[in-house]
């Protein structure tokens, strides 16, 4: 299905996507919000710039954006895959609990806030470029990878992992000068450890047509919280 979303209300777009079984190409998209909310199956290809809450509660479908995403891409996503050929705004993957998000370039504030995992349901966010402040805030599980493909000096920013109590943040960087919160343990990864994350890098490369072995070279840091019970000692029963 081809669809020019420009003159339609967003729920009409979503109705049309569902009527087509979930597979659709939207062209000239310009800020329409909530596209593919809760979609269970199919592949939605978007040309242009979708608005906020793209693929919120996504439940199995794949979304490909040839352009930039806005805020709240993949909010509370459960299953499926979102691929952004560009950059995105704030709160990417808020409270995500499954599926994968690949962003070719950069993400703004609060990516991966409060993502969580359970058993083999592990959400993954791969960021090709750099990330803004509060990356992985309140993170309770899952994996966030910052590839830093253009070798920026500071690929992550202040308050990364603040309030984090589960999951892993992996950052490729020459050195990590960012000031990290006290409860975050940060260390250089050994070569042998990297293999656990290699499949995600390969997937990133294949989604964006890169065959760049350099992406996974150099120093890679692993950020993890020091406890999954951060507030155990905070309270006293009254």
């Amino acid at each position: 299905m081809k669809y020019n979303g420009k003159t339609y209300k967003v729920n009409e777009i979503n109705d049309a996507i569902k009527a087509a079984g979930g597979t659709a190409t939207l062209t000239e998209v310009l800020g329409e919000r909530f596209i593919a909310c809760g979609l269970k199956e199919g592949v939605v290809t978007i040309e242009g710039t979708p608005g906020n809450a793209l693929g919120a509660y996504l439940d199995g479908a794949k979304i490909i954006v040839h352009g930039n995403g806005q805020d709240a891409v993949g909010d509370t996503m459960n299953e499926g895959k979102i691929v952004i050929h560009g950059s995105v705004g704030d709160t990417l993957g808020y409270a995500m609990r499954g599926g994968k998000i690949f962003v070719r370039d950069n993400v703004c504030y609060r990516a991966g806030v409060h993502i969580k995992e359970y058993g083999d349901k592990v959400p993954v966010i791969v960021i090709g470029g750099t990330a803004g402040c509060f990356l992985g805030e309140y993170m309770a599980g899952g994996v966030v990878i910052v590839l830093n493909k253009d070798n920026a000096k500071d690929p992550i920013a202040d308050y990364t992992g603040v309030g984090m109590y589960g999951g892993k943040i992996v950052v490729r960087a020459e050195s990590l000068d960012t000031v990290l919160p006290e409860q975050i343990k940060c260390r250089r990864m050994e070569n042998g450890e990297l293999s656990a994350f290699t499949p995600y890098i390969k997937e990133y490369c294949s989604e964006f047509g890169r065959a760049d072995p350099k992406l996974w070279t150099g120093t890679v840091y692993l950020l993890q919280p020091d406890s999954n019970n951060p507030y155990k000692r905070l309270y006293t029963n009254n």
Binding site: T91, Y118, A140, G141, N228, P230
Partner: peptide, 17 residues
């Protein structure tokens, strides 16, 4: 809740979105 056994479950004060 879909979080591992024994882990805290923290609901932040605001919705960050």
């Amino acid at each position: 809740r879909m979080i591992p056994e024994g882990s805290d479950a923290v609901s932040p004060a605001p919705h960050h979105d």
